Amino acid sequence: MKKIYFIVFFLGSIHLHSQIVLDSMTREPIQFAHITDEKGQGTTTNEVGKFSIDYFVESNNIEFSHLAYRKKNIKKNNLSKKDTIWLSPYIISLEEVFVRGETAKDIIIKAIKSIPQNIISNPFNLYGFYRESVQEDGKGAMLTEVSFMTYNEGDNNPQGYQAEIIQGRRTENHTKLNLDAVGGIATIVRNADMVRSKSRMFDIDNLSDYTFKYVGEIESRENPILIIGFSPSNDNIYNNNMGKIYIERETMAIVQIETQKDPEKIKAIVASSLEGKKSKKPVFILIEAKATIKYRKVHDKYFLSFVEVDNVRNGILGQESYRYSSNAKYILTLVEHISPKKLSTNYDVEEGFNKQVIAIPKLEGWNENNTMFFSEEERKILKDIRDLRN
C-alpha cells in the first residue's frame, strides 16, 4: 500500500482529474481542508480548494473536514471526476467569549495538561509530502517536492524526529546568493510540533512569557472550538511569537495554531544583528515569518497533519541586496503506529536540504502531482524558472 502511494506521487501525475471544495454559503474555495479515507490516509486541498480524487486509489469512503465546517462523508464511487464538494460553515464568533470561572490562561493550562491523553505516547511513523519554493525579488528561483517518512520515539523523545526522503525532485537553484534550504523535513516537523514537545507557549513553566485572551469561538454542535490569542508579555526582542490557538472545548485538544513573529521585535533584532558587522559571505536576515499548524485525529489520537511556513528574508553581500520569499508546506498522508519502522535522517540537516534531492534542470515532465495541486503562485514560480532556461 505505501509503495503504491509513493509511485503514484511522481509517476502517476501526468494527467489528473481535479475536484474542488467550496463553502456552501459564500461559494468561495476552502483552502487546506483535510481529505481522508477509512484507513486514515489523507491529503489536503490547495489554496484554491482543489484536490484530486486520483490520489485515493484504493479507498472506499472519503471524509472532508475543516475546523470551520461540518464534516462530510462520501462514498468514493459516488464522486465524479469533476465534482464540487460543498461544506456547510459553522458560526464563528470573533467577539471575546467567556468561560465561566476560567481565564484564557486557565484554558491553556488545561490544554497542556490534556496533551498526554490527546497525543500518542508510543513510537510512530508519519508519511507525508513536502513542497518548498523560493522567490528572489518576486521571481521564481527554486522549487522542491519530496515524499518522506518520519520516525518519532513517542514519550521517550518527543522532539526526536528523524526523517527519510523516499523520493524527490527539485529545480536548479537560481538564487544569486545561493540561498538553500537547510534542515528540510526533519527541522520543519520538529519545530512545528510544539504540542508534542510542549515548547514555546505550551511550556507550562514559561507561560509568564505570554499574555492570553479569549478572541472567539467556532460554534460547532459536535465540539465547540475556543480561539485564544497569545502575545509576548515582556519587551525581550527574542520573545516574539504572537497569534491564535484553537482548542476543542470538550477534549481540550489543541487542533490548530496560527503564529507570526512580532514585526517590531523583528526590526529590533535586524538592527542589532547588522550593527557594525561585515561579512565576505552572504548574510540572510529574517524580516517576516508566519506559520499555520494543524492537527487531525487518527486512530483516536492527534497528529501533526499540516504545516505552512512563510518567511521573508533580506539577502546581503557587500553592495548586493535581494529579497527572498520562501513558502514551505508539510502534509500528513498516513500514520503507522502498530509496527513503526525506526530510521535515521538520510541527509545532513546542517547542509543544504535540496542537495539531497534529484535535480531536474530542464523541468521535463514536471506536472501536477496527485498529493497536492500547485497554487497559482507555485505555477508562476515554475514558469519563471522555465523562462530563465530559455
Rank of each mutant, 00 (worst) to 15 (best):
Y5E: 02
S13I: 02
L16Y: 06
Q19H: 11
V21G: 02
Q31W: 06
G49C: 09
K50R: 15
S52Y: 05
Y55N: 00
I62C: 06
K71G: 12
K75N: 14
S80I: 07
R100S: 14
D106F: 12
I107P: 02
K110F: 02
N118H: 04
P123R: 05
L126E: 00
V134K: 03
M142I: 08
V146M: 08
G154M: 06
D155P: 00
P158S: 10
P158F: 03
Q162L: 04
Q162E: 15
A163S: 13
I165L: 14
G168I: 01
R169A: 11
T171L: 08
E172V: 05
N173C: 13
L177T: 14
I188M: 08
R190N: 12
R190A: 07
V195E: 00
D209G: 04
G216A: 09
E217Y: 00
P224D: 08
P224I: 00
G229K: 01
M242E: 06
I245N: 00
T251H: 02
M252G: 00
E258M: 04
E258W: 05
A268E: 13
A268V: 06
I269N: 01
G276N: 15
K290V: 07
T292F: 06
K297V: 00
K301C: 03
Y302F: 14
V309S: 03
N311E: 13
N311V: 13
N314C: 02
L317W: 12
L334A: 03
E336C: 04
P361F: 12
M372V: 09
F373N: 07
E376Y: 09
E378N: 10
